[in-house]
Simulated scan of single mutants.
Amino acid sequence: MNSQTTQKPEPTAAKPSYVKLAMRNMVQKGGTSVQHFALTAIALLVVLVGLAYLTR
């Protein structure tokens, strides 16, 4: 009799995608994520308008 038993690897659940993890994190943090997103959007607009003004 063979003393080694062959075990089938258990099927692992698929890892959640990066987007799904980011959405879950954003929901958990609540208003902080929305505030950071708004600040980033405003900063990007300021940079783009500033560059447009400088290179007119």
Rank of each mutant, 00 (worst) to 15 (best):
K20S: 15
T32N: 10
V27E: 12
L39Q: 08
L45Y: 06
S3C: 02
V46H: 00
R24D: 15
N25R: 13
M23L: 15
A43D: 04
T32P: 00
S17Y: 01
P16C: 00
R24F: 06
I42Y: 04
K8L: 11
Y18W: 15
V47L: 14
Q4I: 09
M23N: 09
F37S: 12
E10I: 04
L21R: 15
V19A: 12
V34F: 15
Y53M: 10
V27F: 14
T55S: 13
K15T: 12
N2M: 05
P16G: 02
Y53V: 12
T55V: 12
L39F: 10
A43T: 08
S3W: 02
V46C: 06
L21P: 00
S3G: 01
T55E: 05
A13M: 08
N25E: 12
P9Q: 04
R24T: 10
Y53I: 09
N2D: 14
E10L: 09
R56S: 09
G31L: 09
L45V: 05
K15V: 08
F37Q: 06
R24H: 10
L54G: 12
Q35S: 14
F37Y: 11
T32H: 09
E10V: 08
L54C: 03
A14N: 07
T5A: 08
L44P: 00
K29R: 15
R24G: 07
R56K: 10
L45P: 03
Q28T: 07
P11F: 00
